[in-house]
Design a binder for these strands. Structure first.
Lengths: 168, 168
DNA sequence: TACGAAGTATTCGATATCGAAATATTAGCA
DNA sequence: TGCTAATATTTCGATATCGAATACTTCGTA
């Protein structure tokens, strides 16, 4: 039994202090660190849930990317969206196609491209998993009022809107 | 050249719509989706920067975890913090120790445990990388006023404070 | 004290991922 | 039209990661 693992709150506090000491601006680090800490916790919970569905985190990322896009995507786009090398996507898609969760079809206009889309089974898996994760996500925000959730969402969306301008 | 990749804002909008259609609550999904989208973008930028330093994302996660903790950690703790299997950590630490960035030392009280800590070179690498990433992070938040940043940080920290209660 | 259960790091074989090269198609332009 | 550069996917060899098994230590308790 290890020395008690520090709470997420304590980890956050220390992380911000470390970054500030290293020269980071406090208001920036409080936000960035909290966002990353939250995502990490969410990822851990998702991974736990996905075991039951016999899907790896990487495979789940492909399924959600396709679901969220609302249209067919190419292997390259999926690699970009899921932060993985294009060559890795080939194998992932092989496995997903083998299980009947996605299907590949040729692009009519450009024969170097391939369209990847969710099958009915893929959509079904997506729905099942979403119902599970939504429970956790609601719990996470339960200490915020409706007004606070709206404000939090608004502020985050201001940040999101700027993302593309930065890496351009 | 692929069909133009949708903007982060457009991806966010679609993702929220998809989750809501699948039965998720909108106020929840707007927040969760934005947080995940932001983290993904940050990860992409970090990965780009880390190439120059000859450090993989996984190795960087170990370095930052140790820096943020402010104390020595065990391989198990590092595996937990970086979302990786304990057996994978062994090899990562081997490589990091080989490069002189971390060092292992025995735990005086419990001989099954090992203490991992940053060397001076490890701290130096951390400092250099932080200076680089802080620039990007500040850019990300540039559309928010000081008051808004504070409010955003406050709201996120409320959420962070709840994390441990949930998976307990 | 002694002994079984639990904790901790590592090893090992199978699989996933990476970066570079290969293959094929399309776009730009002289 | 040709020819070169750029795109997109896949293949391939090297490396990283995973889950299970292993070796050892510590804890709980009879």
């Amino acid at each position: 039994m290890a020395r008690r693992t520090p709470s997420a709150q304590e980890l956050h506090r220390r992380a911000v202090a470390t970054y500030v000491k290293a020269g980071g601006e406090e208001s920036v680090q409080r936000v960035i660190t909290a966002v990353q800490g939250l995502t990490k916790k969410l990822d851990q919970w998702y991974a736990h849930q996905l075991v039951d569905l016999e899907v790896t985190a990487g495979e789940w990322a492909v399924v959600t990317s396709l679901a969220k896009a609302g249209e067919a995507l190419t292997p390259s786009q999926l690699a970009e969206l899921t932060n993985v090398a294009p060559s890795s996507m080939t194998h992932r898609l092989d496995k997903l196609a083998e299980r009947g969760l996605v299907e590949r079809s040729p692009d009519a206009e450009n024969r170097t491209r391939i369209h990847v889309s969710l099958t009915d089974a893929g959509w079904q898996l997506f729905s099942v998993a979403i119902r599970g994760s939504d429970v956790v996500e609601s719990d996470v925000l339960q200490d915020l009022s409706d007004a606070e959730r709206g404000e939090l969402a608004r502020l985050l969306e201001v940040v999101i809107a700027r993302l593309d301008d930065i890496d351009a």
